[in-house]
């Protein structure tokens, strides 16, 4: 029964990893951009939520009402003023600019918030749980986190395939020049995609902060988890990303059970294993 419990907890943590990954997946799908600072933005969102909670006394989960719109506005501006200038055939500029952003964010957070780790306190929901099986209790917070992850991925999927914005994303991703002929300015489309990505980042950041301690240097680790979930699940498949996150979460949970030092390592090794045997991921997008 102990293993059932470990796997279930791993699945629930996988939801958080899918939240880390969903934004990455979206941005890559629309504009082939990989944002090295993605993890740092997640951490920055957690700090932003911390500030909002300190200022207003809101429950961190409700701070999303403030944090998500702010993050989206920031994402729009970031894409419009900086990242759009780096897009082109050469992959170096976007990579190096976002790498620079990563360093700026980490050290900016360090300068403002010091290296002390912090936590968002969501109250009783953090510790409350209900028994599913004997010896297997489901915490309300991990469950909520998983449900939110599923909802976010469903929402992105819906938006992608059933709305005008989603059509614009797909058309621009297919062929940005022909999209111009439809009146779609790729720079604006990209800015909207980044805004959306940052909205998801904000949700991920708040759940990260509620679940565990965070400090200014946690970003790269979150980027790597998100990235691994994307690759395990298969590029361009959002539901695959969710499964990728779950696989990563379960691998880490099993690794941690064997030896606490192996938690993160186990996840990396499963990722490398998938890369070795299924380089396109487990659920690659079927080409039309």
């Amino acid at each position: 029964m102990i293993w059932v419990n470990i796997i279930i907890q791993g699945i629930l943590v996988g939801g958080l990893y899918a939240l880390f990954a969903a934004g990455l997946s979206l941005i890559f799908g629309v504009m082939r951009l990989v944002n090295i600072a993605h993890g740092d933005f997640i951490v920055a969102a957690a700090f932003l939520a911390w500030v909002v909670v300190q200022a207003t006394g809101l429950n961190p989960l409700f701070s999303l009402i403030v944090v998500v719109p702010l993050a989206m506005a920031f994402g729009y501006a970031l894409q419009k003023w900086i990242l759009n200038r780096t897009l082109g055939k050469d992959i170096l500029p976007p990579l190096l600019v976002t790498f620079g952003l990563s360093i700026i964010l980490q050290n900016g957070l360090l300068a403002v918030f010091t290296a002390d780790s912090r936590k968002l306190n969501a109250g009783v929901v953090e510790t409350a749980s209900f028994p599913l099986l004997p010896d297997v209790a489901i915490g309300y917070l991990p469950l909520l986190q998983f449900i939110v992850a599923v909802a976010v991925i469903w929402g992105l999927q819906y938006l992608f395939y059933n709305t005008a914005l989603g059509r614009a994303f797909r058309a621009t991703s297919d062929d940005s020049e022909t999209a111009l002929l439809m009146g779609l300015d790729q720079r604006k489309v990209y800015a909207w995609a980044m805004a959306l990505c940052m909205g998801v980042v904000a949700i991920a950041g708040v759940f990260l902060g509620v679940r565990s301690n965070f400090d200014p240097f946690m970003g790269p680790g979150r980027l790597i988890f998100g990235f691994e979930a994307v690759i395990i699940g298969g590029l361009g498949n959002l539901w695959g990303t969710l499964i990728g996150g779950v696989i990563l979460g379960v691998s880490q949970a099993i690794g941690a059970q064997i030896n606490p030092g192996w938690q993160v390592l186990a996840g990396h090794l499963v990722f490398l294993l998938v890369l070795a045997i299924r380089p396109k991921g487990l659920f690659p997008r079927i080409e039309g």
Binding site: S173, D174, L180, L181, M182, G183, G288
Partner: peptide
């Protein structure tokens, strides 16, 4: 003017090779 403004002015191009969006 850029292409996305010109189409709003009332000029449409049916491009060579059709250039349909395969994801749509």
């Amino acid at each position: 003017f850029v292409a996305n403004d010109i189409v709003a002015k009332g000029i449409a191009l049916v491009p060579e090779g059709r250039k349909l969006f395969p994801s749509l």
